[in-house]
Nucleic acid binder design. Structure first.
Lengths: 237, 237
DNA sequence: CGTCAGCTTGATTACTTTCAATTGTTGTGG
DNA sequence: CCACAACAATTGAAAGTAATCAAGCTGACG
């Protein structure tokens, strides 16, 4: 369970290729960012950067899942987004030249590359296509954030939990059986997505289980009736 | 109470200059967008575009206040943002090539210019600076949206109402007396900001009034103790 | 002067949180 | 491998908060 930078390929050969925004870069530019990038390993639970930290670069996830969360005054966490292999993190703060607005935590063991701030800003100027791609990313993020806002403000806890499960499915996908969500989150983390408490989450999950929408085994959630779940969540896609 | 396009100056001479993102454009490009732009008058309450509508262009507010809101399934509205003189609207959907994600409604009589979609996209390519500025705008919007999410998910109604008032102050400013918010919103609209019901909003406003934080006259809200209000809202700036 | 939209109030109900206590699970060091 | 500590899950009961429902009010306006 220990890998070093050498296990992460050069950006030029990165097999994340074809997914992330950085993949559209020219070979030359990929070579350039490879020179400067740092590649790090983060153990499950480890924090990659904290809300409020000074921005030191752009993070690009080579492998593993990351959660982005904000902390309320009362100390309660709200998960705002997930990021996975090939996703980039920190571009928002980097662009507006502000501290990080959320805390990034490894949800499983992760390998993450860091591209220095200046290098990325240079790239933006050098490759106009990159600007447009980042614009689209931000647009998507904003759309999702506003949708989540609407959901949390208007839906019941039950609906929000149902939606959280749908979100997990979309973010993490299924395990081999094609029904079990390929991630283990604590009840508390699920609560932090739905914006409720751990206890209520437990009760609600039990309820959804009784209603036959999901199966709960010790470590994972299996979706038994996706359509009904999506209907309950008010998600149509 | 009736003005026509001719009252709106050419973009080259627009006195919004120096505030909006478009102001950084070269004279040539400003001249170009002036050629194609449509200038419209919207009466208070009128809808500028609806959530789900096909995107036809970029809106630039020449005068007046606009609210951006989304509709929940239950028909309840959630206000996601305000826009005022010199702000632009619709860039997000335009960039990600999707329908509008929110409904824009004139909160007072408004004059709004429309720049055709293609023209704006051309501009983005022509002036790299514009891309960066739009990136920053989006970053800010995202930041605010995520903050609002955190607030609504973790604060009590009373705190949210207090915050809504702070938001109104920041968006609309004060009237001449330096204490009264320069906008009249219905209780229902305030409820739609805070994500609660009209009745609860009324009761909570009355409470804040009794506690000496605000004054309520028939049509407006006067802030009596900004600091205490901000403290209650958990806003520190 | 009637109407309509917005405002207000009270009573009731439903939903969630909070608190407290218990049980289960996991990783670690002896 | 076991015992312990720390964390995670669960359950019940009580308290609180805000939504809902049902009436009146009020002021603006044709």
């Amino acid at each position: 369970m220990n890998r070093s930078k050498k296990d992460i390929p050069s950006c030029v050969d990165c097999d994340v290729n074809g997914h992330g925004v950085l993949c559209a870069l020219s070979k030359e530019n990929k070579a350039k960012i490879t020179q400067n990038k740092g590649g790090n390993f983060y153990k499950k639970g480890q924090v990659i950067f904290y809300e409020g930290n000074h921005v030191n670069g752009l993070y690009c996830i080579y492998d593993g899942m990351v959660k982005l969360s904000k902390l309320g005054e009362n100390g309660k966490e709200q998960i705002v987004r997930f990021a996975k292999r090939s996703d980039i993190l920190g571009y928002r703060s980097l662009l507006s030249d502000e501290p990080y607005q959320a805390t990034a935590t490894a949800m499983e063991d992760c390998w993450v590359c860091v591209i220095p701030k200046e290098r990325f800003l240079n790239l933006l100027e050098a490759e106009p296509k990159l600007s447009l791609d980042v614009l689209k990313l931000l647009s998507q993020d904003l759309k999702l954030a506003e949708q989540l806002l609407l959901d949390i403000s208007q839906k019941s806890v039950k609906e929000r939990i149902a939606e959280a499960i749908i979100l997990l499915k979309k973010s993490f996908g299924y395990q081999n059986d094609g029904r079990t969500i390929a991630a283990h989150l604590t009840r508390s983390e699920i609560a932090d997505i739905a914006g409720t408490t751990t206890e209520t989450t437990i009760r609600t999950l039990a309820q959804l289980s009784q209603e036959g929408l999901i199966d709960l085994s010790r470590k994972s959630i299996r979706i038994r009736n996706y359509d009904a779940l999506a209907r309950m969540a008010g998600v149509f896609d």
